[in-house]
Design a protein around this nucleic acid. Sequence first.
DNA 1: CTGAAAGCGCTTACAG
DNA 2: CTGAAAGCGCTTACAG
Lengths: 341, 341
Amino acid sequence: MRVRLRDVAERAGVSPMTVSNVINGNHARVSPDTIERVRRIADELGYVPSASARSLSARSSRLIGLLVPTADEDSLMISPHTMAMVGQIERELRRLGYHLLLRGISDLGEVTEALQSWSLDGAILLGFLDEEVDSLTATTVGGVRVLAVDSYSSNPLTVGPRSDDFAGARLAARHLLDLGHRRIVFAGPAFTGVGVVHERFEGFRQAHAEIGAGWDPRLVETVNTTHADGLRLGRGLLARHPRTTAVFATADILAIGIMHGLTESGARVPDDVSVVGFDDLDLCDYVVPRLTTVSQDIAAKATTAVRMLIDAIEKGTPPTAPVTVDVSLVKRDSTAPAPQQ
Amino acid sequence: MRVRLRDVAERAGVSPMTVSNVINGNHARVSPDTIERVRRIADELGYVPSASARSLSARSSRLIGLLVPTADEDSLMISPHTMAMVGQIERELRRLGYHLLLRGISDLGEVTEALQSWSLDGAILLGFLDEEVDSLTATTVGGVRVLAVDSYSSNPLTVGPRSDDFAGARLAARHLLDLGHRRIVFAGPAFTGVGVVHERFEGFRQAHAEIGAGWDPRLVETVNTTHADGLRLGRGLLARHPRTTAVFATADILAIGIMHGLTESGARVPDDVSVVGFDDLDLCDYVVPRLTTVSQDIAAKATTAVRMLIDAIEKGTPPTAPVTVDVSLVKRDSTAPAPQQ
DNA sequence: CTGAAAGCGCTTACAG
DNA sequence: CTGAAAGCGCTTACAG
């Protein structure tokens, strides 16, 4: 039924081990003639090596897990940003000859089983909270090399790449400040003293500090990162903050909701209120006005994640410091000079 | 290092085979006492079965491949619809105790290797062209059970689920006709005598036929399914078809582009021109006006795909006929009664 | 209800 | 440059 290494060996009149050496490119140990003949016969027979047999006998499976959190009965890819990352990570892994096991995690207790059962060479954690990443121990990962994307956890087991959240928010705020805005609302989910949102908040404030502009902490609006929450916030924004002329939202989806809410309430974007988002989803080009936002380099982040992981696996040494991926500001139509008050 | 079946067996004072029976739920063959003890010890030791060893010795790997086409250097998930399907399929597979291997295919020649190397129990083909699905043979799939989603290929090896494209387009056209529209543009990619777009075209025409309305074939506009192409079409639409009052587009992205193009050209949506899309992406709620569209039940399609595949695997008999998944019309703000001419 | 033996398809030291 | 043997961690008939 299935063509095995042994079948190729018999047909070629050599030992299985010689075929193994040819297949795995250990050419130093086989004569050119034999290589050529074994190759030809393997092709003729349509030989495909058994990855499970290989994984069982060798130390390497060339299998990488991609773990994504998911609500119990829910589908895994919440945000468009996560989905884009999955696609990019798959591409890069495939380019390097690895396979991808995609796995939703509804409870951290599943991580050990997810990591161990297929003898993964490594795994990427995508979209987990810092506190979840914090909680992983050498026991839970069981010797599997792991890496968390966009994490500010200080867990040495999970060092990985992240977008430059601080610089991104600083760019966004700076853009608004340059346009003359001074009372800028910061809209995003609740945050603590560490993490993605905290970094963005610090970058936002830093931009103010740099030009000596004051900023009123009451301009923080805590909301969930959804279009619906943005819409609600946008509708009531000018009622709550009458003198506000701009909003920086920590996600595009949220920013777009806010824009629409503002429009519904009779405010014009960007003439009355400017809005800046974060992520640069395709979506930003499809809404009216097109959204000015901070662009994350998803391809670079995915490539960096894969390279850091594979390097660590092949060289045997884990990365010591997080890698920061550059971001940039994409100016579109949702920002304009602050109106004269 | 790794805890093995044998380690559990030794600790429990039983044979490896008894542990195997306990782990695999063959309780008929083990005494309750033993079951309880083996379970406890396995837990204590943190035993996780080796999937590759299991896959090698048993006939089953409990691994399902998800194959998605991808341009060579490109990332795999082109459309939001595909991405949503990936998430739903993963969830359903996980629920049934299977694992998911996600694989981009840039050349059909890769399919055999993708299917065979991990001894997959089955695979789902997502987003392939009918002609690509047609070309798969028993040799290329090599005994692996496969299933194509949304395919109108008549290949008996790949029978799977698909959305009711005909009914969806019929509903969309019917909605526009009921609103009094009579010169409706059909916008979509080039199509032949079989396939998704062809079905939608037939449903569109059927709606006209049912109410005895004529329809001018020159109202077909062939465009790529992108926002940019939609934009271009929208801008020039009324110049090309002066008496047109409505557009049915075969995809939301396209429909949204068309809406914006129309708006740019000075036409009002829906007052002057109504627009209907297909898919019901989240996006439809985020644009202004919110898009009326045909909703595909992605969760149902994913669940159906997984169930059909797993059934075929476990029962040993392949599905004989495609399963059609219902669609529905979601009325939002982009459609209105035809203006008086 | 329980076990000893063979085997799944590879790779890895070890010899020559 | 090539090979025989052992082993990776399981499951599967076959016995008892």
